[in-house]
Amino acid sequence: MSGKLRLPPLNALRVFHAVVRHASFRQAADELLVTPQAVGQQIKLLEDTLQVTLFERRGRSVEPTEDAILLSHYVGAGFAEFAEGVRRVTKSNYRNRINLNASPYFATRYLMPRLAQFRETVPGADLRLTTMVDTPDFARDDIDVSVQWGYGDWPDLDVSLLVRDPKVICCSPAIGAQIETAADLTRFALLHTVKSKRLWPDILHHLGVAQGDQDGSIGFDDAATMRRATLQGMGIGLVSVIDAEEDLRSGLLVAPLGRDALQTMPKDEVPGFYLLAPRAHLRVKVVAASHRWLLNQTWDSLPDLLSTPLAAIPPHDA
């Protein structure tokens, strides 16, 4: 019996989970409807049981130690599994429901044309689709799986790349007429979405352009707004290939450095759309089936939307 691990009280772990999320004893107490003193007692009990220090006080806030950060990943995953199990067992009408969240761009450009196929592949599933620019809180927002734009850095989730989202440097013809080299890009506002602050620095570095001390960029909430700003001549945008094809064909935008200027970007510097899910959710049959369907799609093949290859579009005279 001496070698058997003694688990700390569940209530102490629950309090710990709240304190980590709020970085405050008082805010954790407000959530749990107890006093800050009661929170402090539970944290002390947990520290005594584990024989480690979990928090250091910083004025009115508390800062988790390295041990606390490590523990929080496992405790958070554990409570997520508890919540999922209770929800699935107690809500019989929820068992066949799949709450799918996706970034607005992925939902409209990639997912919507395939929804009929999804219903054929996963019959009986009650699909609920929502869109969100930011990564959802899976428990709070009642989300089963999500597709989000980024670089794959979601350490606490099951993460799979669905399709990369390479960009084309685009601008209005008037701005394009003033760009002869990559260095000329920094003379204009560099447009981006707020989730892609690293994209322009990576691209400028790839092109051998020094960005300088001044940040001449403008951030937008979503790709659609950034694209409209590019069309209105507010600056130089990074437009997804699908949209770039439409705008270059129509002549509304030009690619001043060429359509293939970014094709040799390192793979880890090219963002993409990733399928995210708490691991506990994948143990539910309907969620696992939906997750498997999303993984098995060939997302980079969109014949209805990409009838003409980008390289086949004739150059536009600026």
Rank of each mutant, 00 (worst) to 15 (best):
N96S: 14
N96M: 11
R97N: 11
I98D: 15
L100E: 07
N101T: 15
N101L: 14
N101W: 13
N101Y: 09
A102H: 03
S103G: 13
S103K: 15
S103D: 15
Y105D: 08
A107I: 02
R109I: 12
R109A: 10
Y110L: 04
Y110E: 02
L111K: 07
L111E: 04
M112D: 14
R114N: 10
R114D: 06
R114A: 08
R119T: 14
E120C: 12
T121E: 13
T121R: 11
P123V: 04
G124I: 10
A125G: 05
A125E: 01
D126V: 07
R128D: 08
T130C: 13
M132I: 15
M132P: 13
M132V: 15
D134Q: 14
P136T: 07
D137E: 12
F138Q: 10
F138C: 05
F138V: 12
A139F: 14
D141V: 10
D142I: 09
I143C: 08
S146R: 08
S146K: 08
Q148L: 05
W149N: 15
Y151I: 08
Y151Q: 03
Y151A: 06
Y151N: 09
G152I: 10
D156E: 12
L157Y: 09
D158I: 05
V159G: 05
L161A: 08
L162Q: 03
L162T: 10
D165R: 12
P166E: 00
P166W: 00
K167G: 00
K167H: 02
V168R: 03
V168D: 04
C170K: 01
C170D: 04
S172W: 07
S172D: 04
S172M: 04
I175K: 00
G176I: 07
A177W: 10
A177S: 11
Q178N: 13
Q178H: 15
T181H: 12
D184G: 02
D184K: 01
R187Q: 07
L190Q: 06
L191N: 03
L191K: 03
H192D: 13
H192S: 14
H192N: 12
K195P: 13
K197V: 14
K197H: 15
L199Y: 07
W200Q: 00
W200C: 01
W200N: 01
W200V: 04
P201E: 01
D202Y: 03
D202C: 05
I203L: 07
L204W: 04
H206M: 00
H206C: 06
G208P: 03
A210V: 15
D213W: 11
D213G: 07
Q214C: 12
Q214M: 11
S217G: 07
G219F: 00
G219N: 00
F220E: 02
F220A: 04
F220V: 00
D221M: 10
D221P: 12
D221Y: 10
A223G: 09
A224N: 09
T225D: 11
R227G: 15
T230A: 03
L231G: 10
L231F: 08
I236E: 06
L238P: 05
V239F: 00
